[in-house]
């Protein structure tokens, strides 16, 4: 069973990387980009009996820093 973890910066937290990407897009002539926020995706290959609580604990203990980041778990069947 696979699960995908989406880690994103909390709203309001400054994202210099997103700002740089935004700037580069503008440099390539892409107008109308209002904002860019960068995050990361972590794909886990898990034992089939892994419960939601265990995945959530992985996120809280390591995969995301909840001081500055939010996370969303997507199970891939």
């Amino acid at each position: 069973m696979k699960a995908r973890i989406f880690v994103t910066l909390k709203p309001g937290v400054l994202d210099p990387q997103g700002k740089a990407i935004h700037h580069a897009l503008a440099g390539l002539g892409f107008d109308g980009v209002n904002d860019v926020r960068a995050g990361k995706v972590i794909e886990l290959d898990l034992a089939d009996d892994t419960g939601d609580a265990a995945i959530d604990e992985m996120c809280r203990k390591l995969l995301a820093n909840t001081v500055i980041e939010n996370y969303r778990i997507e199970r891939l069947g």
């Binding site: 210099p16 001081v67 500055i68």
Partner: peptide, 17 residues
């Protein structure tokens, strides 16, 4: 130390990149 929870807050990418 912040990641370990011994100190509050977080150190993020420098604002000027």
């Amino acid at each position: 130390l912040t990641e370990a929870g011994l100190l509050p807050g977080a150190l993020m990418r420098n604002a000027g990149i």
